[in-house]
Nucleic acid binder design. Structure first.
Lengths: 152, 152
DNA sequence: TTGCCGATGTTATGTTATTACGATACACCC
DNA sequence: GGGTGTATCGTAATAACATAACATCGGCAA
């Protein structure tokens, strides 16, 4: 490290290790989900060599709520609400099948419907995966993109 | 083929081929999801040898709504409502992390909330993956199984 | 110092999914 | 019959995703 004014105040931030910080930075820079091997390729230059290094870092980031796994893609994104800390709820992802971008959101009503189903079926709900596929506003065509009509 | 009275009436049933029928039967017999390679192992005896034979059959079964893929498990189940044909809606799966059994359901309200989100974000929703993890009624312990109170 | 513990690095292996290519079977038309 | 198109099938090879096993390093408390 060239200089030493590392962030060592407010221990709320879980103090990432180098590998974890590298992986998080790579996810932040990407504008669509990256697979573990995508990450590995991007971080070869930083000295990472083996899949496990990536998976271990991802495990930690996910445990801390800083990244999410998209099951339907076998890929990972950084959390949209980094630091918001209310990652307690059920999160949903809208994945554009054209450009690959992902929009993260939480809908309390959906959450409560899921809980209601669980309750009524005596199912002890621990976790939910909600992933939508479709075309995002930018890719769905010349519908009415806020400020760029295609042609008169 | 030993005999020739093949089923060739009512084309509503998509007329499964041998491989497809074998895979579907294996899924029906299992009481939890099977991976493609699980299926392959179970069907070795029937002469199936390569992953592709399984994946091709699964693709057809899924296209016909006779099977589903569980993304969070990389595994497959047969559709609970075979023949019901109204597989148009969004389906959710509750997966027991203990026994592996899966309960399939559709909740119109969840569906409409998802559609509402999509509408308001100009997202052209094509498909949704909803998978819940938790403990099923049988596995969550001696809570209050329908007809066996624990003790007064 | 010693012992423990968590993070790391490395190799090997396991699991899931696809690509590529050729053969076979059947319907349709000439 | 001979040709063409389409769908399925069989096989081998390989790509993509993920984990196991084990040795090592560095901090830190007893």
């Amino acid at each position: 490290m060239a200089h030493s004014h590392e962030h060592h105040h407010h221990a709320l931030r879980p103090e990432l290790t180098r590998n974890q910080a590298l992986v998080l930075a790579a996810l932040n820079e990407a504008d669509s989900p990256l697979s573990a091997y995508d990450l590995l390729n991007r971080l070869k230059a930083e000295g990472l060599k083996a899949p496990l290094q990536i998976y271990r870092a991802l495990d930690k980031l996910m445990a801390d709520g800083l990244a999410h796994r998209l099951e339907s893609l076998n890929a990972f994104v950084c959390c949209a609400k980094q630091g918001h800390e209310d990652s307690s709820g059920t999160i949903a992802f809208a994945i554009c099948t054209d450009c690959g971008r992902v929009d993260e959101f939480a809908d309390p009503q959906i959450r409560s419907r899921l809980e209601a189903w669980a309750e009524s079926h005596d199912f002890a709900l621990k976790q939910a995966t909600l992933e939508l596929r479709g075309l995002c506003a930018r890719c769905r065509g010349p519908k009415a993109p806020p400020a760029a009509p295609t042609a008169p």
